[in-house]
């Protein structure tokens, strides 16, 4: 029982990261139909920039802020120099472009950083807290709390601000949004920037637990994509749920079945779910109009 609880804790922690990556996918997808495979690299940048800035003597909060700035700038650059010039290209072409961008970002990171695994100290110490017979790392609470705050902040931004409403209008109907005077290019740039920030935050929060290196982005992007699709692409609630579900299943499978195939869980689950529900867990089941 306490073992189960242990797995649930670690599963939710990792799941929160997947959820944030999936949220980044959803944000950009809604603004443009683009599936941004560079999403995982934002997480990588969040961790790596913090690590190296911190190692160079910058205080941790400042290093983290720097990492967020770098990731946001990277997101904006991807949009400005890779997505915007390819406006109107088909979905496969855009996917390849974002994968090209992720290879480029990783390649540059390899030059600037190194190939080792790194971490920085946890925010509130490393001593586990005992909860109902299981133990939880203080940093896990940071991850879960941080993710909750990010999701809430994003929700508030979407619901309460004019800019957020513009984003939602663009997601609902791009043409109509343009017709009422919304600058959809700006909205998409914003989506890339915010996705960069969310990714970086996820990377910063989780690095003390999972460590980071320049190569962590690929698998995170693929799993985040699976999580977003699991929830039904374009559905933010589905993305968060999909991420948490994947994280949980992964931890349970690693604990009770085989840790070798931990990484397989996300893909087995997504394939199995899509076989039964071709629109994902929360996707609308519409009859195609002809």
């Amino acid at each position: 029982m306490d073992q189960l609880l242990q797995f649930v804790f670690s599963g939710l922690t990792v799941g929160a990261v997947y959820a944030l990556v999936a949220l980044g996918f959803t944000l950009i997808y809604n603004a443009s139909d683009v599936i941004n495979f560079a999403q995982g690299e934002f997480v990588m940048l969040g961790g790596m920039v913090t690590v190296f800035a911190h190692a160079a003597g910058v205080p941790l909060p400042l290093a983290a802020l720097l990492a967020i700035v770098v990731a946001v700038a990277t997101g904006l650059a991807v949009h400005r120099f890779a997505i915007e010039p390819a406006r109107g290209a088909n979905a496969v072409t855009l996917i390849i472009i974002t994968i090209g961008a992720s290879i480029l970002i990783r390649g540059l990171a390899q030059i600037m950083f190194d190939k080792q695994f790194h971490r920085f100290p946890a925010f509130s110490g490393e001593d586990p807290i005992a909860v109902l017979g299981a133990s939880i790392l203080p940093q896990s609470l940071w991850v879960l709390g941080g993710a909750a705050v990010i999701v809430a902040a994003l929700w508030l931004f979407m619901e309460r601000t004019l800019l957020g409403k513009a984003v939602r209008a663009t997601a609902a109907n791009r043409l109509a949004a343009r017709l009422v005077g919304i600058d959809t290019t700006l909205v998409l740039a914003l989506a890339f920037g915010v996705s960069g920030a969310i990714g970086a935050l996820a990377g910063i929060l989780v690095t003390p637990i999972t460590l980071t290196s320049v190569t962590v982005g690929t698998l995170l992007a693929l799993k985040g994509f699976a999580a977003a699709m699991l929830g039904g692409i374009g559905n933010p609630v589905g993305a968060v749920a999909g991420g948490l579900v994947l994280g949980l299943l992964e931890a349970l499978a690693a604990g009770f079945l085989s840790s070798t195939y931990k990484d397989a869980v996300a893909f087995v689950v997504i394939i199995a779910v899509l076989f039964v529900l071709p629109q994902g867990l929360f996707g609308k089941r519409a009859v195609e109009r002809v």
Binding site: A86, T93, I97, I99, G100, L104, R106, G107
Partner: peptide, 12 residues
């Protein structure tokens, strides 16, 4: 790697 990524983007 960086150049490969860049080339892919430019080609596309």
């Amino acid at each position: 790697h960086a150049v490969l990524g860049l080339m892919i983007i430019l080609f596309m």
